[in-house]
Design a protein around this nucleic acid. Structure first.
Length: 897
RNA sequence: GGGAGCUUAGCUCAGCUGGGAGAGCAUUUGCCUUACAAGCAAGAGGUCACAGGUUCGAUCCCUGUAGCUCCCACCA
């Protein structure tokens, strides 16, 4: 169905050739994506030779465009999938969308109202569904396009929808099986009702909001008494019309004498038995509770315990019914006022006290929900919750970060039956049929022909649809072919990881787990990787009503998909919320630009592939250093990915690319690259290119477009980067000596640059460098003359000759000695003395720190021997440096005088 | 009423199993050095919320306090 878009995007893969001077994502992102699609790089199939790695996409609701939260969710999944694909797994990322029953229905109703001026009933069930499907087509397509823009490497041939044929079949099947096991039942219970959406809601769909309300204190006179009354406090006076009793605590001395007696309901005159029930809290209100079984869940329970009558006083649209007598027809809130007025007039109202309390509201429209008695379908939760608790307890299923297990457990351990029927049209219609003749209920895959009880032949299907989460709960297996026993199901299930936000742990994660365990006999995923919410820059939730939402497409348009992805992947830790800040996108874009230009630089000088490193090359210190660092980076970043520390991995690679590869290695490479020695040139090209190759591989999961684009420009590439094997650290390249030597060299260069900057010596002004260090360190500097020349503006580099006197020189103290830089008249002795003073101060402080440590007997005795040794060695070096610095400072000071 | 998280540089945030405090942005100074001004180089900037404890040693572990945020919950 998405063929058209793909075709439109299809173009040739970029031919190797010149790269533009500036990173321009628009020039290649769509093209690269189309290339992957053409080559079916996202396709996953049952492959016995490979291990599967499966992620099912949390299906976005078709209620609208994707927001930044989706972009985060999908970026994380795409990173994992791309990485595992490169590692050689058969990586399946299965995409799809969710019909989002109530949420979509609300939107479609709005649209019909706006465009046609009609309400739901006026267009009728069939007309409504027709419009809803059209809506689905529109948004489903938009969502897919957005995902493609972001670079999501889903297997689009497998795209699913929670209301497609397969999913429908799975829903029916699960419903029937649970019904047959007795775990789905129909009952007349008190449910959460939204008078605006006109449907039931599950407990999870009720949001509690703090509201300013009041306690209304009312006199309930005893039967046959003119003056004895119970003072009752209620926040909802209108519900008194449905009162059928009064409850007090069994051990409350204030009310003991009233238990068993009868009070009279004001305004109505109904007789109310006074009962004792331990539920009543003596501290709340007056300690006497009016009982309204039909309009309060607790009262419902009390009513059951004491066989109280049930009086429903309200209609489903929130107006009062005939039982409300004179208040019939009034809206519930209008009625509240009217009742209060009436009570006031009749002298029953004692007082009104302000009171803050939590009120349940509809999670879709935020209308205050109404507990109502109604016939609904329920899932019996206890038998299902047990196994779901067990798999987390025994670590079969793990949450990352681990703290979310508590939330999951707490919910399951306090679970109540799940009301699954909804008085809506958009959704899976409940597969229950009622015989028109004898009202027998038949739960079946299709409408029955004849009634087994009465032989009737007319059946009517239940009007209601299922809670939208009923179908999404089956997503990990319904999308793989269940209830059929397909090879896909066998191979890809259980999936590897579920990536989702903490906000839908109750709604969705929990329900997938118990559904998977029940239907498949196995967990739906091994891990749950939880991320936070993307918030606006001000920390508020992004929302349409606040107008602070940021459209991912706008960001992609401005900075490119890679920049957005990199920003989302870095700088925040698992499970924590992330503030969306545009300057971080910008800095990610800058990083992409850096990578682009570094690659351009490496590739510019290369006409033909210099080949891979084979060990025959003569490597310089910098070569050995960068290869060693790369090898460590490869190990570390891979470990980070395994632990779902995606941001940490990305940051490490970022640092390596920018601070080590670009700032240092490339700079050291230039002399050799531009030099005359062809062997040197070939070697440095090999190193540059081979490190670049690995950089592109390591970065590909995070920023797939630019890395693939650059990859396409490399000489003699074998395959697309997306399917190139993930790098394995070359342990033979680990070289601690090279790293140490390079550190010393870089420190020295930084110090030289520092003193030159302090003294405002122009970069063009070259200076000699006389190396006066211990013999073993001499090669570090003398063998790297060229680096010192190009990176530290040295005109010549030579060893100090014993006994020589170097006048008017700046001294750069390094571990093991000093570098003398004669600057003659350019030396600003005042600045030099200031610099040296700072140096001395720093060194002294550092030595003090070490001394206090080494002076501590406990430290020497108990700290690891290696650490103590290191500190001792460090102290020796620092002491030498301090002596040199102090000497030099003294000399400079004498010059000043 | 339960539970979770947060408090680190001016801002936004990283800091894995305790051993010399980091990034991005902003800021200061100098540079259009032939990959990159979306850049280069050199700086400045922190009593790691507070108080105890464990430890040779605590930003990190434990306890408590304060402030902020969020989740759950049937107190009328």
């Amino acid at each position: 169905m998405e063929e058209k878009n793909i075709e439109k995007m299809t173009q040739e893969m970029p031919a190797a050739g010149e790269m533009g001077k500036t990173y321009d994502p628009k020039a290649f992102e769509d093209k690269i994506y189309a290339g992957w699609m053409d080559k079916k790089q996202f396709k996953a199939e049952v492959n016995p030779d490979k291990k599967p790695y499966t992620i099912v996409l949390p299906p976005p609701n078709i209620t609208g465009q994707l927001h930044m939260g989706h972009a985060l969710d999908q970026t994380l999944q795409d990173i994992l999938i791309r990485w595992r694909r490169m590692q050689g797994f058969e990586a399946l990322w299965l995409p799809g969308t969710d019909h989002a029953s109530i949420a979509t229905e609300v939107k479609v109703v709005e649209k019909i109202k706006k465009e046609e001026g009609l309400n739901k009933e006026e267009v009728g069930r069939d007309g409504f569904l027709e419009r809803a499907w059209a809506w689905r087509e529109d948004y489903g397509r938009q969502i897919v396009n957005q995902m493609m823009k972001l670079g999501s490497s889903c297997d689009w041939d497998r795209e699913r929808f929670t209301m497609d044929e397969g999913c429908n079949q799975a829903v029916t099947e699960v419903f029937i099986r649970l019904y047959e096991k007795g775990l789905i039942y129909r009952g007349n219970r008190l449910i959460n009702w939204c008078p605006d959406c006109m449907t039931t809601l599950s407990d999870a769909e009720v949001e509690h909001e703090e509201k300013q309300g009041a306690f209304y204190h009312i006199k309930y006179y005893l039967q046959d008494s003119e003056d004895d009354y119970l003072e009752i406090a209620t926040t909802r006076p209108e519900t008194m019309l449905g009162d059928t009793g009064i409850a007090v605590h069994p051990e409350d001395p204030r009310y003991a004498k009233y238990v068993g007696k009868v009070a009279i309901l004001p305004l109505v005159g109904r007789a109310l038995p006074i009962v004792a029930d331990a539920y009543v809290d003596r501290e709340v209100g007056t300690g006497a509770l009016k009982v309204t079984p039909a309009h309060d869940p607790n009262d419902y329970e009390i009513g059951k315990r004491h066989n109280l009558e049930t009086v429903e006083a309200m209609n489903f649209d929130g107006t009062m019914n005939a039982a409300a007598g004179e208040f019939e027809g009034m809206d519930r809130f209008t009625c509240r006022k009217a009742v209060v007025e009436k009570l006031k007039a009749s002298g029953h109202l004692i007082e009104i006290k302000e009171h803050q309390h939590n009120v349940g509201t509809c999670y879709r429209c935020h209308t205050i929900i109404e507990p109502m008695l109604s016939d609904q379908w329920f899932v019996s939760m206890e038998p299902l919750a047990g196994p779901a608790i067990e798999v987390v307890k025994n670590n079969t299923l793990e949450f990352v970060p681990e703290r979310f297990t508590k939330i999951y457990m707490h919910w399951l351990e306090n679970i109540r039956d799940w009301c699954i029927s909804r008085q809506l049209w958009w959704g899976h219609r409940i597969p229950a049929y009622y015989c028109e003749h004898c009202s027998k209920v038949v739960v079946a895959r299709e409408m029955p022909d004849t009634c087994a009880d009465c032989g009737g032949t007319n059946f009517r299907q239940d009007e209601d649809v299922l809670d939208t989460w009923f179908s999404s709960a089956l997503w990990p297996f319904s999308t793989l072919g269940w209830p059929e026993k397909t090879p896909d199901l066998d191979y890809f299930y259980p999936t590897s990881v579920l990536v989702t936000g903490y906000d839908i742990i109750f709604f969705w994660v929990v329900r997938m787990v118990f559904s998977g365990l029940d239907a498949m006999g196995d967990i739906p995923f091994d891990k749950v990787f939880i991320h936070g919410l993307v918030r606006a820059a001000d920390g508020k939730k992004m929302s349409k009503s606040l107008g602070n939402g940021v459209d991912p497409l706008d960001i992609i348009d401005q900075f490119g998909a890679d920049a957005l992805r990199f920003m989302l992947a870095t700088g925040n830790s698992p499970g924590n919320d992330l503030k969306f800040q545009i300057d971080r996108v910008e800095s990610s874009r800058n990083f992409a630009n850096k990578l682009w230009n570094a690659s351009r630089f490496v590739l510019m000088g290369i006409e033909k592939d210099p080949g891979a490193l084979d060990g025959s090359e003569t490597l310089t210190l910098a070569d050995r250093w960068i290869l060693s660092r790369l090898s460590q980076l490869t190990t570390e970043s891979t470990e980070n990915l395994e632990k779902f520390e995606l941001g940490v991995a990305a940051n490490k690679i970022y640092e390596f690319v920018w601070n080590e590869y670009c700032d240092w290695y490339i700079e050291t490479a230039k002399k050799r690259l531009y030099g005359e020695n062809p062997e040197e040139k070939a070697t440095v090209q090999k190193v540059l290119l081979s490190v670049l190759r690995d950089i592109l591989k390591l970065l590909h999961p995070f920023i797939p477009f630019i890395t693939e684009e650059i990859w396409q420009h490399l000489p003699s590439k074998d395959a697309d980067l997306i399917v190139t094997p993930w790098p394995v650290a070359n342990l033979g390249h680990v070289d601690a000596d090279a790293e140490r030597a390079m550190e010393i060299l870089m420190d020295a260069i930084r110090s030289i640059r520092n003193s030159r900057a302090e003294m405002e010596v122009a970069p063009s002004r070259k200076a000699r460098l006389i190396v006066k260090v211990s013999p073993e360190l001499m090669p570090v500097f003398l063998d790297q003359k060229t680096y010192l020349e190009s990176l530290a503006s040295a005109s010549e580099v030579r060893a100090f000759v014993e006994g020589e006197v170097v006048e008017d020189a700046v001294s750069v103290v390094v571990p093991g000695g000093e570098l003398l830089m004669p600057l003659d008249d350019l030396i600003d002795y005042k600045k030099e003395s200031e610099r040296l003073e700072r140096e001395v101060k720093k060194l002294t402080a550092e030595i003090d720190r070490i001394d206090s440590k080494l002076g501590n007997a406990g430290f020497v005795a108990k700290a690891p021997a290696q650490l103590v040794e290191e500190e001792r060695a460090k102290r020796v070096t620092l002491a030498e440096m301090l002596t040199l610095s102090q000497d030099r400072l003294d000399k400079v000071k004498s010059k000043l005088k």
